[in-house]
Amino acid sequence: MRVAIIENTRYSDPGQVGVALAEAGAQVEVIRAYAGEALPGSPDTHDALVVFGGEQNARDDDKHPYLPQLAALMRAYGEADKAVLGICLGSQLLARGFGGDNLIGAAPEFGWQTIEPTAAGLADPVLVAAGARPFLSFQWHDDTFSLPPDAVHLAGNQSARHQAFRVGRAAYGMQFHFEAHRGVVETWNALFPDLVERKQPGWLARHPEYAATQGAQADAAGLAIARAWVALI
Rank of each mutant, 00 (worst) to 15 (best):
M1V: 13
R2Y: 12
I5Q: 08
I6G: 09
N8E: 04
D13Y: 14
G15Y: 07
L21P: 06
A22E: 07
A26N: 07
Q27V: 15
I31N: 05
A33L: 11
G36D: 02
E37W: 11
L39H: 06
L39D: 06
T45E: 12
T45C: 11
F52N: 05
A58Y: 07
D60L: 12
P65V: 13
P68Q: 03
L70M: 07
I87R: 01
R96C: 10
G99P: 09
N102Q: 14
A106P: 06
P108W: 10
F110C: 08
F110L: 10
G111M: 05
W112H: 12
W112Q: 04
A120H: 13
V126P: 03
L127T: 11
A130T: 03
R133W: 15
F135E: 00
S137G: 13
D143P: 10
P149D: 01
V152F: 01
V152G: 00
H153C: 05
L154S: 07
R169V: 00
Y172H: 01
M174P: 10
G183S: 02
E186N: 14
E197G: 11
L204A: 05
A205E: 10
E209F: 15
Y210N: 13
A216E: 05
A221Q: 00
G222C: 04
V230G: 02
A231L: 03
L232C: 04
L232E: 03
